[in-house]
Lab assay of single mutants.
Amino acid sequence: PKDEAKKKVKEAIKRGDEETAKRIAKKYNLDWDDAKREADEER
């Protein structure tokens, strides 16, 4: 599900692992900028 994928993307971003985050986002066709902004807001 997309929500689960987005959570994984945000967790990867918070760990500083943007490569993984981008790969997950691409795989699930998520909006990378959107997920990154959300992760930054939660930090």
Score class of each variant (00 low, 15 high):
38 E>Q: 07
33 D>G: 06
33 D>E: 14
12 A>F: 13
7 K>L: 11
40 D>S: 09
2 K>Q: 13
40 D>N: 10
26 K>I: 10
7 K>N: 11
30 L>E: 00
7 K>A: 12
13 I>E: 00
27 K>F: 14
34 D>Q: 13
29 N>T: 03
42 E>M: 07
36 K>W: 12
1 P>H: 13
4 E>T: 09
38 E>G: 05
9 V>L: 14
14 K>E: 10
25 A>M: 02
8 K>S: 08
11 E>K: 03
31 D>S: 10
18 E>S: 06
30 L>T: 01
28 Y>K: 03
6 K>D: 02
24 I>C: 07
21 A>T: 00
24 I>P: 00
27 K>Y: 14
37 R>W: 07
21 A>G: 04
9 V>A: 04
5 A>P: 05
36 K>Y: 09
28 Y>M: 02
4 E>M: 12
20 T>V: 08
28 Y>H: 06
28 Y>V: 03
32 W>S: 02
13 I>Q: 01
21 A>Y: 02
13 I>T: 01
36 K>M: 12
33 D>A: 09
1 P>G: 14
36 K>V: 14
37 R>H: 06
32 W>A: 02
27 K>H: 08
2 K>A: 13
34 D>H: 06
8 K>V: 08
22 K>Y: 08
24 I>S: 01
13 I>N: 01
34 D>T: 13
10 K>H: 09
10 K>S: 06
24 I>W: 07
8 K>C: 15
29 N>S: 09
18 E>N: 08
22 K>L: 10
5 A>I: 10
19 E>A: 12
41 E>Y: 11
40 D>C: 12
11 E>M: 11
31 D>E: 06
1 P>Y: 13
41 E>Q: 12
22 K>D: 01
33 D>T: 08
43 R>S: 13
36 K>D: 03
8 K>F: 11
2 K>L: 15
15 R>A: 11
8 K>H: 09
13 I>G: 00
11 E>Q: 08
24 I>D: 01
25 A>Q: 01
21 A>E: 00
36 K>E: 04
36 K>A: 07
3 D>Y: 12
35 A>L: 15
11 E>P: 00
21 A>L: 01
42 E>A: 08
31 D>N: 12
25 A>C: 14
39 A>N: 04
9 V>M: 13
14 K>W: 15
23 R>N: 09
24 I>L: 14
25 A>W: 01
3 D>L: 11
19 E>L: 10
29 N>H: 10
24 I>F: 04
42 E>I: 06
7 K>V: 09
35 A>G: 03
23 R>D: 09
32 W>Q: 01
24 I>K: 01
41 E>A: 13
37 R>T: 06
15 R>Y: 05
20 T>I: 08
17 D>K: 02
2 K>E: 12
7 K>Q: 12
29 N>G: 14
38 E>M: 07
6 K>A: 08
17 D>F: 05
36 K>C: 09
28 Y>L: 02
34 D>G: 06
4 E>S: 09
22 K>G: 01
40 D>A: 11
28 Y>N: 07
4 E>L: 14
7 K>D: 07
3 D>N: 11
20 T>N: 06
38 E>D: 09
14 K>Y: 12
40 D>H: 09
18 E>W: 15
38 E>W: 08
10 K>T: 07
31 D>K: 03
32 W>I: 07
28 Y>I: 04
42 E>T: 08
24 I>V: 04
37 R>P: 03
34 D>P: 02
3 D>W: 13
39 A>M: 08
29 N>Q: 09
38 E>V: 05
30 L>S: 00
10 K>R: 12
36 K>P: 03
22 K>S: 03
27 K>P: 00
19 E>H: 06
